[in-house]
Amino acid sequence: MQRPCFRFRGFLTHGGQTYSAGSPERIREIFRENLDRMNSLKRAFSLRFPRVGVEISVGDTPGCRLAEGWRGVDEVRPGNFVFYDLQQLSLGVCSQEEIALAVACPVASLYPERSQGLLYGGAVHLSKDTFLDAQGRRLYGWVVPLREEGWGRVEEGGGLLSLSQEHGLFELTPPLAASLRAGGLAAVLPAHSCLAVSALGAYQTLDGKQVERLREV
Rank of each mutant, 00 (worst) to 15 (best):
M1E: 14
P4T: 07
C5L: 15
F6K: 10
R7Q: 15
R9M: 12
F11W: 04
F11D: 03
F11T: 06
G15C: 10
G15D: 09
G16S: 12
T18H: 07
T18C: 10
Y19G: 10
A21D: 03
G22K: 01
E25I: 09
I27A: 05
I27D: 00
I30G: 01
F31G: 00
R32N: 11
E33K: 12
N34C: 12
N34E: 15
L35Q: 03
L35T: 02
L35A: 08
R37D: 14
R37A: 15
R43Q: 14
R43M: 12
L47W: 13
R51A: 15
R51W: 13
V52S: 10
G59L: 04
G59W: 03
R65W: 09
L66C: 04
A67F: 03
E68A: 11
E68M: 10
G69N: 12
W70R: 09
R71K: 15
R71W: 13
G72E: 05
G72R: 02
V73T: 00
V73P: 02
E75F: 14
E75C: 13
V76N: 02
V76S: 07
N80R: 05
F81K: 07
Y84K: 04
Y84R: 00
D85N: 08
D85Y: 01
Q87D: 08
V93G: 00
Q96I: 09
Q96P: 11
Q96E: 15
E98F: 02
E98Q: 09
I99D: 03
I99T: 04
L101K: 04
L101G: 03
A102V: 08
A102G: 09
A104Q: 10
V107D: 01
S109Q: 15
L110P: 00
L110A: 07
P112A: 02
P112Q: 05
R114V: 10
L119I: 03
Y120Q: 12
Y120V: 12
A123G: 10
V124C: 14
V124F: 12
H125E: 13
L126I: 02
L132R: 10
L132S: 12
L139W: 02
G141P: 04
W142Q: 04
V143Y: 01
P145W: 03
P145G: 05
R147M: 10
W151T: 01
W151F: 09
V154W: 11
E155P: 05
E156P: 06
G157V: 07
G158P: 01
G158L: 00
G159P: 01
S164C: 07
E166F: 11
F170K: 00
T173H: 03
T173N: 06
L176S: 08
A178F: 09
S179G: 08
G183H: 07
G183E: 06
V188G: 00
A191L: 00
S193H: 03
C194G: 15
L195V: 12
A196R: 02
A196M: 04
S198N: 15
S198T: 11
A199P: 02
A199S: 11
A199T: 06
L200I: 07
G201N: 11
G201A: 11
K209W: 13
Q210E: 14
Q210T: 15
L214D: 10
V217E: 15
V217M: 13
